[in-house]
């Protein structure tokens, strides 16, 4: 009798771990696949809604993205308290980092938008009417709906020519970006036309 009891206790303690390991591995693979690491340069923002917007497929991984955050947003207030972001600098983020000034942002744009860097272009295209070499790259401006429009206006000017500055200096500094995309929120769900 005592022997029988011992046998039954042994069989009860055995636990087959195979199904749980299978499930966990499947979950890990699922999360690895759907986690989009390429969108690290997108800040969390409340974008204004625009029903006429075209869907942003984000196919061009090399496109230039400028984020303008709102310091008053509760998430950003915490980031300011933790010292991650500074209210003394512009609320502009590129490549996940806050820029020191608009000139700093312009240098980054100029470096990334240099038309001579395009492998598909044998030589830079020159606009005959202006004699300029405009960049083919668009810039996507993601601005929080509660932020002032002045920052977008300033970025537009820093993409092209800053009024009042010397033209010879501007030709050296301007990224010459003329295609602008303003990011907006849509009410559409994925796959909806």
């Amino acid at each position: 009798m005592a022997k029988k009891k011992g046998i039954s206790a042994d069989t009860e303690t055995q636990l087959d771990m195979t199904p749980i390991i299978d499930i966990v591995f499947n979950l890990v693979i699922f999360f690895m696949v759907i986690t989009d690491m390429t969108q690290q340069d997108l800040e969390f923002l409340a974008l204004p809604k625009a029903p006429m917007a075209v869907e942003d497929k984000g196919e061009d991984k090399e496109r230039l993205i400028i984020n303008i955050i709102d310091f008053a947003h509760p998430d950003n207030k915490h980031r300011v308290e933790r010292g991650e972001i500074s209210t003394q600098k512009p609320p502009i983020f590129v490549d996940g980092r806050q820029v020191d000034s608009l000139d700093h942002m312009r240098q980054w744009l100029r470096l990334r938008a240099d038309p001579t860097r395009y492998p598909d272009m044998d030589k830079p295209v020159i606009d005959p009417s202006t004699g300029l070499r405009p960049s083919k790259k668009p810039v996507l401006i993601r601005c929080d709906q509660a932020q002032v429009f002045g920052w977008v206006q300033a970025i537009m000017q820093y993409c092209t020519f800053v009024p009042g500055n010397k033209q010879s200096d501007e030709l050296q500094k301007s990224p010459m970006i003329y295609k602008l995309e303003i990011a907006v929120g849509t009410n559409k769900k994925q796959g909806e036309q």
């Binding site: 625009a50 917007a53 942003d56 993409c159 602008l180």
Partner: peptide, 8 residues
């Protein structure tokens, strides 16, 4: 996200 495209 969507976008509104314009040219400067």
């Amino acid at each position: 996200e969507g976008k509104l495209v314009s040219y400067l």
